[in-house]
């Protein structure tokens, strides 16, 4: 337990320091993108948040699948912690994306495939928690939520292909693509720094959240034994 806590503290502190550095890098260091101007700097938190959200559903689904197989409570706790983080980071993607889009494309919302995919991912996470909260029997809730996470993760490739195809059917306003091999070195460096920072922060807070769930199980066990 203490090992987890120590790891959580270390990762979170590293992540927070990284976040401060990332803010400094993206405000003062990185050069301004030529066509989009200053608003493109949202990129350095937007993309890492998206990466983290999809990492979260992957971890959540993987832990859920192994939980259904081995029935180790720790795996369910990990799946829950990852899903909660995923919900937070997906929310960041969904709010920073429109802020960027309003300047870059002139509209808050477009059916840009990756933005749409993140919206649906957000609802998958929301469904995960609604299922958990709406069951009286906690074990049943855990199994139900695990199935939601697994099916959600399996469906994501399909959703991705479909929203891409949908866009190819309907011409969209020209979307400036900032990704790709053409990204200048300092922007690429800042992006990778952001990806690392968000991943560290995610895992730090993930471990904390995991520890909370462990304590909750112990507390509930104690109330049950003292009541009996």
């Amino acid at each position: 337990m203490t090992g987890i806590r120590r790891g959580a503290v270390a990762l979170t502190l590293l992540g927070l320091a990284g976040l401060v550095a990332l803010f400094w890098l993206s405000f003062f260091w990185v050069s301004t993108e030529v066509t989009q101007g200053v608003v493109q700097r949202i990129f350095y938190v937007h993309v890492p948040a998206a990466w983290t959200a999809f990492l979260a559903i992957g971890i959540s689904a993987l832990c859920s699948a192994v939980y259904l197989w081995l029935r180790d409570e720790r795996l369910d706790r990990a799946a829950l912690a990852a899903a909660e983080g995923g919900l937070v980071f997906a929310t960041i993607v969904l709010t920073t994306g429109p802020l960027w889009g309003k300047i870059a494309w002139g509209t808050y919302w477009t059916w840009e495939p990756r933005l749409t995919l993140t919206l649906l991912l957000w609802f998958i996470f929301a469904g995960y928690f609604m299922v958990r909260n709406a069951t009286e029997d906690p074990d049943k809730g855990k199994r139900f939520a695990a199935v939601v996470a697994i099916v959600g993760a399996l469906d994501i490739p399909f959703i991705h292909v479909s929203v891409l195809w949908f866009r190819s059917l309907h011409p969209q306003p020209v979307v400036a693509k900032v990704e790709g091999p053409t990204l200048p070195g300092d922007m690429l460096a800042t992006l990778f720094f952001g990806l690392g920072t968000f991943t560290l922060l995610f895992f730090g807070l993930f471990l904390f959240r995991y520890a909370v769930e462990g304590l909750r199980t112990r507390a509930e066990l104690r109330t049950r034994t003292s009541a009996a």
Binding site: I42, V45, A49, G85, I92, W100, I103, F208, V212
Partner: peptide, 29 residues
């Protein structure tokens, strides 16, 4: 100036949401 406001808002959202999550975990802990 508007793009600047959007950038600041986006970075503020990052702080509020990650900080909020960290805070809620700490409170539960």
């Amino acid at each position: 100036l508007r793009p600047y406001w959007h950038v600041f808002a986006a970075y503020a959202i990052v702080i509020v949401l990650i900080g909020g999550w960290a805070f809620s975990i700490a409170r539960r802990l």
